[in-house]
Amino acid sequence: MTLSTPLLAAAPLLAGLIGPALLGAAPGPQQADRSAVVPAHTARRSDIVEHVAARTAADQRRVLDYWTPERMAKALPIGLLGVVTDGGLLGGLTGRAGVRTTPDLTGRQADLTVPRKLMGSHQLTAARPDSSTIGSRWVTGGLVAKTTGRVFLTLAGADFVCSASTVKSANRDVVVTAGHCVKDGAGEWAANWTFVPGYRMGGGHPYGQYTARRMFVAGPWSRSGDDNHDVGMVALATSGGRHVADVVGTQEIVFNPARGGQAFGFGYPADPPYDGDHLVYCAGRLKDDPYGQTRDQGLGCDMTAGSSGGPWMTRFDPATGKGVIMSLSSFKYSDDRRTMYGPYFGDAARALFNTAERA
């Protein structure tokens, strides 16, 4: 895959956020990876890399204690990883901000300077769900308001936020998010990983906080940050002795779906003009990657960094908040800030899920 550039934030924003977010950001102990080495022709189905996270009760308590309301408030959108650290995927050229530079017609990477994102048509409130919107606050409630949540994690010594959703699974513990919200491509795994379903403004966690037990990504993501495989599955620990599915419910998930069609995308965007305190949604028709750089599909959406990993659903019912997850927020191209792209859930994503639900 071609290299990606980070979603650049204005200097005043970084000056006010970088310092506080780094204070006390200790990654905690890292465990060894477990990966399956398979022939190339079978990699799509069985090439999965696993990381053991907070395995013991003591580990889980340490992670929960780490995330004070102050740390949650200061955590940065994962898109700033390549900006606030010297590392990051491929020497800091990480697309985990959600912005890829636009390839030219020959397929080579264009040398572009990514401008500050300008938002001119977002809506922060909506009286009722719309079937077409590039960004509105979700005020209808329903199941999606409980199953979608914020993710808090530490990577490269700094604290970050993403989005994720519960999915129906055999162990009642699985959430799906972006691969870059779990592992920095060929770089390190995230630490202090915690899911807060139904997150409320000011650090509220009405349904508990769930630490990661085991994390899973596809081999192509782990080795090279392949955007086709920007998917992470996480098996959570219980909270108060209860599985996350038993507390908030779950959404269905589908693999190898028909391409195109209508979709609703959800997340907690945290880069301006959003603040990460509200669930936001986009809705519209899906389209293929116009540059042919990935198998991803695009959705009209002005959500910013922090929404990474938020679920995209087909067959979504706005009245109940139920749907079927078929993708998630992954990246944008630098010449089109109003379209988000999400990976196609094929055989590799199915294998990832099958492994996670048995964890």
Rank of each mutant, 00 (worst) to 15 (best):
L352Q: 08
T154L: 12
G265A: 15
R100T: 10
A26I: 07
A258P: 12
L89M: 10
L328A: 09
G249M: 12
T148Q: 07
A57V: 06
T42D: 00
A351L: 04
Y66R: 10
S329M: 10
F152Y: 15
D288L: 13
D230P: 09
H278P: 09
P269V: 12
A190S: 14
W221H: 13
R172M: 04
T154P: 00
S35E: 01
S330V: 05
A178I: 01
F353M: 12
P6H: 09
V99P: 00
G204M: 11
P129K: 15
P206E: 10
W138K: 10
R137F: 07
S163G: 08
S163Q: 11
Q31D: 06
R62T: 09
L279W: 00
M233G: 06
R34F: 01
P311K: 12
L90Y: 08
V231L: 07
I253D: 11
V139D: 10
I325L: 14
D277Y: 02
S334A: 15
I78Q: 05
V84N: 11
T148K: 00
Y274S: 09
T166Y: 03
R71A: 11
T140P: 00
A43Y: 01
R55F: 02
T113V: 15
S165T: 11
G92M: 10
D246S: 13
V151S: 03
L143C: 09
R71G: 01
V247S: 06
A145I: 04
Q209H: 04
S163D: 04
A212E: 07
P220Q: 06
F331Y: 15
G276I: 01
T125R: 11
M119Q: 11
G306E: 10
V161C: 05
D246C: 11
T133A: 14
G92P: 14
T355G: 04
Q109G: 14
A186Y: 06
L112C: 10
V217K: 05
H229P: 04
T314F: 03
M233L: 15
H243D: 15
T355V: 07
G208Q: 06
R44H: 02
D226E: 13
I134C: 12
G309S: 04
R137A: 07
W189F: 11
P311D: 13
G16V: 01
S334C: 13
D111C: 03
D271S: 10
G267H: 12
R358W: 00
V254A: 14
M201P: 01
G107T: 15
H229D: 14
V161M: 05
D33L: 02
